[in-house]
Design a protein around this nucleic acid. Structure first.
Length: 293
DNA sequence: ATCGGTACCTGCACGC
DNA sequence: TGCGTGCAGGTACCGA
């Protein structure tokens, strides 16, 4: 579910309910959601009990998006060890949800964690059907986040062009690579490449400067419009208040296989095709998206 | 550096 | 009705 626009929307709708609040209790049902000592670093490696003990009593100072990660900065008043500052790092995987609910009960079948807040009738629920999501408690988020590339909404056009230089991989693979840019996923990679008129299998280094600049712009526009509509709800995604997004209405290629191209079909009859690139289904118009630089 | 394959999970749509 | 298959917004790890 959650790519940059969805995570951004979740963070924006979460802030009013949680920032400044204190966590008064925590219950974790699926240890794997917080467990699995990650070699990628920093995990306080941790049982469900220790996790609950560590966050209970902490105040939620800030909530930010970093790529597809939700970063919650917590402050503990009298920590047993270390400084009081810890970071709750949440990645929603494919089907993760983070919502504020008026009940404490694990109402959904796949709710794995509930945090009670010091506000009557307000509980933070984490639910993840496929369990690809991860919750980590870190003393320093840098280890986990440092490898990620620039934010696609913030990178300058010149820096973007520069980062494409010498890359021999296909454009679709590159856009999905979180070390290249942080936050794009399958939907927005396909939608951005369509808007830029670039074939997803184009070798990155062969794209002309002009088209690279066009892609930089297309990515920003696609993400901005998606955020304005609260993200794309395909099956699971809702924001922190439980509302779906509406950008799926404006998808031009994603999951439109066999349908007419919205840009060129009137003249050509071209249809959207689906191929596999980088192991992911990839949607594009054979007429509007050419490989030539 | 880059690729393909596999693994991790559940649910759903589909064909038979 | 049930059963098998393939597919789904993500990432990590392996060997080539």
């Amino acid at each position: 579910m959650p790519e940059l626009p969805e995570v951004e929307t979740i963070v924006r709708t979460l802030r009013p309910s949680v920032v400044g609040r204190r966590i008064t209790a925590a219950e974790v049902r699926v240890p794997r959601a917080t467990g699995r000592p990650a070699p990628s670093g920093g995990l306080l490696n941790i049982s469900a009990e220790l996790f609950a003990r560590s966050v209970t009593g902490a105040r939620i100072e800030r909530v930010e998006r970093y790529g597809k990660h939700i970063v919650m900065h917590l402050d503990r008043e009298r920590p047993r060890t270390g400084s009081g500052r810890i970071v709750l790092l949440i990645h929603l995987g494919m089907t993760g949800r983070l919502t504020c609910e008026p009940v404490a009960e694990f109402a959904r079948k796949h709710t794995h964690m509930v945090l009670a807040l010091d506000e009557p009738g307000r509980w933070l629920h984490y639910c993840d059907i496929r369990r690809f999501g991860r919750i980590r408690l870190l003393e320093n988020a840098g280890d986990a986040l440092g490898k990620l590339g620039p934010d696609p909404m913030e990178i300058s056009a010149e820096d973007f062009v520069e980062r494409l230089r010498g890359r021999r991989t296909m454009m679709k693979s590159l856009l999905l690579d979180q070390r290249f840019l942080r936050g794009l996923g399958n939907i927005y990679a396909d939608e951005s490449l369509f808007r830029a008129g670039i074939h997803p299998a184009t070798v990155a280094a062969r794209i002309s400067r002009k088209r690279a600049l066009g892609l930089h712009q297309a990515i920003r526009e696609t993400l901005c419009e998606a955020i304005e509509l609260g993200g794309s709800s395909i099956s699971d995604y809702v924001d922190a208040t439980g509302q779906p997004g509406f950008f799926q209405i404006n998808h031009r290629v994603y999951q439109r296989t066999g349908e007419p191209c919205m840009r060129c079909s009137r003249a050509s009859g071209a249809k959207i095709r689906k191929i596999i690139v980088a192991g992911r289904s990839t949607h594009f118009c054979t007429r509007c998206q050419r490989k030539a630089g």
